[in-house]
Simulated scan of single mutants.
Amino acid sequence: MSQDEEPLPWDAGLQNERTGLAWQRTMLSGLASGLILARLLAEVSLTLAILTGVVSLGAAAAFGWVALRRFRLNARALATGRHLDDARPAALASGLLVLTALAAVGYVLLA
């Protein structure tokens, strides 16, 4: 960079890093919510508790894989200057939220 050029006001890679960290926090909070719910369900139905725990672990693992893949695709897109548009991580987060809510409703109805 020469003396005449001004530096850019942002680093494009930092935005991707912040987004990746946000997806990790979302995954961990979804997993924690599912496991807490599984613990509460254990007092009502052990089968439902185990099913909820297994689904929470599977959904969190899938969510983590999608988030990591998304992070890598975004990094590659930023490096090449192309646009990446994908709604799968948001759809997976919504699905995890719906599953947790359904399990919570099951707990309230059975308790």
Rank of each mutant, 00 (worst) to 15 (best):
S29K: 06
A111H: 05
A60H: 09
A111T: 10
A77R: 11
R72M: 09
D85A: 15
V54Y: 02
V108C: 05
L46S: 13
S29N: 13
I50V: 14
D11C: 04
T52V: 09
T52I: 06
T47Q: 15
D11G: 01
R82P: 01
V44Q: 02
P7I: 12
P7W: 11
L46R: 15
L73G: 04
Y107M: 00
V54T: 13
G13W: 04
A38D: 00
A79K: 15
A49F: 02
A111R: 15
L110T: 00
L40Q: 15
R25Q: 06
S56A: 15
L28P: 03
W10V: 09
R70T: 06
T19V: 07
L68I: 11
L99Q: 05
A103F: 00
L110K: 09
T80E: 15
L46T: 08
L99T: 02
L35E: 01
R82W: 04
R72V: 08
A60F: 05
A79C: 14
F71Q: 14
G20D: 09
L21E: 07
A103G: 03
R69A: 06
L68M: 13
L99P: 00
M27P: 01
D86P: 04
R72L: 13
Y107I: 01
T19E: 13
D11K: 11
L78S: 13
L51D: 07
A22S: 08
L78C: 04
L35S: 05
W65A: 13
A104C: 04
P7V: 08
T26A: 14
E17P: 01
Q15M: 09
G95A: 07
T100V: 07
L35T: 05
T52F: 01
L92S: 09
Q15I: 01
F71Y: 14
A61F: 11
A77F: 03
Q15W: 10
G106H: 06
A67N: 07
G58Q: 09
L96P: 02
A91C: 06
E17N: 12
G58T: 08
R39A: 03
L96Y: 05
A38H: 08
G20H: 12
L92K: 02
L40G: 14
L96Q: 10
S33P: 03
A75S: 13
L37T: 00
V105Q: 04
A59W: 05
V98K: 06
L92W: 10
A62V: 08
L46D: 08
T100F: 06
S29W: 00
E43D: 09
G95D: 00
A104Y: 04
P9Y: 09
A62W: 12
A90L: 15
V66T: 11
G13V: 10
L102Y: 01
A61S: 13
Q15L: 10
L102E: 01
G81V: 08
S56N: 05
L97T: 10
L40H: 13
I50D: 03
I50T: 07
G53P: 06
A93V: 09
L31W: 02
L8Y: 06
L41Q: 00
R88F: 12
A75Y: 03
L46F: 03
G34P: 01
G95M: 03
N16V: 13
G81N: 10
G30R: 04
I50Q: 14
L97R: 15
N74K: 11
L35W: 03
A12D: 03
A49H: 12
L84A: 10
L41V: 00
R72A: 11
R82M: 02
Y107C: 00
R39M: 04
T80D: 12
A62E: 09
L96W: 15
M27F: 08
L92I: 06
R88T: 14
